[in-house]
């Protein structure tokens, strides 16, 4: 929110009423007004984002288990040591990294293909784009339940079709595959939409020039389209990675984290809500926050991703 205050103030400052005295006074008044106008929004934002973050950091520094409220006390970084030395945490961390890497990679490839198709389509353009976006419009939990029913032994149509004699969701690798399929099915349209916006930034003349210069379709794609739309690609991948790292609903509905398929978010939920251990749960959520921040930092500083001006866009 501070960013908004920052952008409003200079905008107000660029107004230049005539006369020197009037200018500085008018300017000051306008700046003041700008701050006042932004204040309510800024306060609300602080209340709903900054305060929970600070509060969970505070909770993570305490031994705080609702089952033993009497034993609550400040323990410093002890919770962090507990979590970071726990194999359960590292298993779920590994699961999360694995799921993120695989699903974002598949989404990127499929999303790019879809984006190219949507970009090139001439007939029924609006219809195709709308249809392609349907999965993204469906609530994740609802979609997850339909995947679960589809893979329920005996009754599910996909279970009958693929492996009639086994319960795929109870085996680790098949369960991962189903989780990834559900994720990919759901979020590829989002990736495609962002990439399509990037494709629109590649001028037609550039592609014409490349074909006359001797580039076939593949060379045009690799040497011209991808480099020119690199900023859009980075933003799309960053958004999806931040989002995928926090995967929760699909896993929760499909496996509940059984067979070691739980992500860090599932572990956090288990400790915080199921286990009522506020200290450990908060520690885990702070660790997720830090990891996500590191990913964003690497993208923005390392790859030069343009800092997105809006929210993370990947909300479900």
């Amino acid at each position: 929110m501070t960013a908004e205050v920052g952008t409003t103030a200079p905008a107000a400052g660029t107004e230049q009423p005539p006369g020197k005295r009037a200018l500085s006074e008018g300017k000051r008044a306008e700046r003041k007004l700008a701050f006042w106008l932004c204040a309510p929004a800024a306060i609300v934002m602080l209340a709903v984002t900054a305060w929970p973050i600070i509060y969970s950091i505070w909770l993570s520094l305490q031994r705080y288990d609702l089952r033993f409220p009497a034993e609550t006390e400040f323990v410093g970084l002890e919770n962090y040591i507990t979590v970071l030395s726990s194999p359960y945490w590292w298993t779920s961390f590994g699961v999360t990294v694995f799921l993120t890497a695989i699903s974002v990679a598949i989404e990127f490839v499929l999303g790019f293909a879809l984006a190219l198709i949507m970009h090139r389509t001439i007939v029924a353009r609006g219809l195709i784009r709308t249809v392609a976006l349907i999965p993204y419009g469906i609530v994740t939990v609802v979609a997850a339940f339909s995947w679960r029913y589809a893979f329920t032994p005996d009754t599910g149509y996909l279970a009958q079709l693929i492996a009639p004699d086994s319960a795929l969701l109870t085996e680790r690798l098949p369960a991962f595959s189903i989780i990834i399929v559900a994720e990919v099915w759901k979020t590829t349209p989002f990736m495609a939409l962002l990439l399509m916006a990037g494709l629109a930034l590649v001028p037609d003349d550039l592609l014409k020039a490349a074909s006359v210069d001797g580039a076939g379709p593949w060379k045009r794609f690799i040497k011209v389209i991808v480099p020119v739309m690199k900023p859009a690609i980075l933003v799309a991948v960053l958004f999806r990675m931040l989002d995928a790292f926090r995967i929760f609903d699909n896993i929760f509905v499909l496996t509940q984290g059984a067979q070691q398929t739980g992500s860090v978010s599932v572990s956090t939920y288990n400790n915080l809500i199921k286990g009522l251990n506020l200290g450990i749960g908060s520690t885990m959520s702070v660790l997720i926050f830090i990891t996500v921040a590191i990913i964003a930092f690497i993208f923005v500083k390392g790859f030069g991703t343009a800092a997105p001006g809006s929210d993370d866009g990947g909300k479900r």
């Binding site: 001028p203 003349d205 550039l206 014409k208 020039a209 490349a210 074909s211 006359v212 210069d213 001797g214 580039a215 076939g216 040497k223 011209v224 480099p227 020119v228 690199k230």
Partner: peptide
Amino acid sequence: KAPKDRDIAMVFQSYALYPH
């Protein structure tokens, strides 16, 4: 023949230089 097989060069109004 595809453009790349015609051995011709083209100059565009927008110049169409590769920005990267």
